[in-house]
């Protein structure tokens, strides 16, 4: 179900913890599985739980707790807009509304072309650059509507990292 590389990485994570503490490796194992598969389908979580020898419900608990895990397929670019206090005071709600308008989707949805998924998330620890959003592994700070437009345009051009 997972690639050889993902299995090796999970085994490495597992080895970091004592024999009776398999659950400690769960966060990392789920992250690796998600990177490998794109999102965490129930079968993928079941498989990860099986690899670690724990009950599937423990994987579901962890995966539903953290917003970084995707339980549904996501677009190529996952846009996570911070909606916590600092960003909100600096106009994150307008950034979000602008993104919805530009992408033609609501928060939580994916564009029909499968390119973008839009999320509102809690604080990502970049209050200094509020309002901010995360796309893939990268933070974009001090957002304005214009800057959002240019980022979207660059992402549409095919870039993954469009600083």
């Amino acid at each position: 179900m997972l690639s050889e590389q993902a299995l090796t990485e999970i085994a490495r994570e597992r080895a970091k913890y004592p024999e009776d503490r398999a659950q400690s490796a769960l966060l990392a194992a789920l992250r690796i599985a998600q990177e490998d598969q794109g999102f965490l389908a129930t079968e993928v979580m079941d498989y990860v739980a099986h690899l670690l020898g724990i009950e599937p419900i423990r994987a579901y608990e962890v995966a539903t707790f953290y917003s970084m895990y995707d339980l549904q397929p996501v677009g190529r670019h996952k846009i996570c807009v911070c909606g916590s206090v600092s960003c909100f005071l600096r106009g994150s709600d307008q950034i979000l509304a602008h993104l919805e308008e530009q992408l033609g989707i609501k928060v939580g949805e994916t564009t029909p072309d499968g390119l973008f998924t839009l999320r509102e998330v809690e604080c990502l620890g970049a209050c200094l650059g509020a309002p901010m959003m995360q796309v893939g592994d990268r933070y974009y700070e001090n957002l304005t509507k214009d800057r959002v437009d240019s980022i979207l345009a660059a992402l549409r051009e095919g870039g993954d990292d469009v600083g």
Binding site: I57, E61, Y66
Partner: peptide, 8 residues
């Protein structure tokens, strides 16, 4: 373990 607390 069959029941769990999902979500946050």
């Amino acid at each position: 373990m069959e029941l769990g607390a999902t979500g946050r």
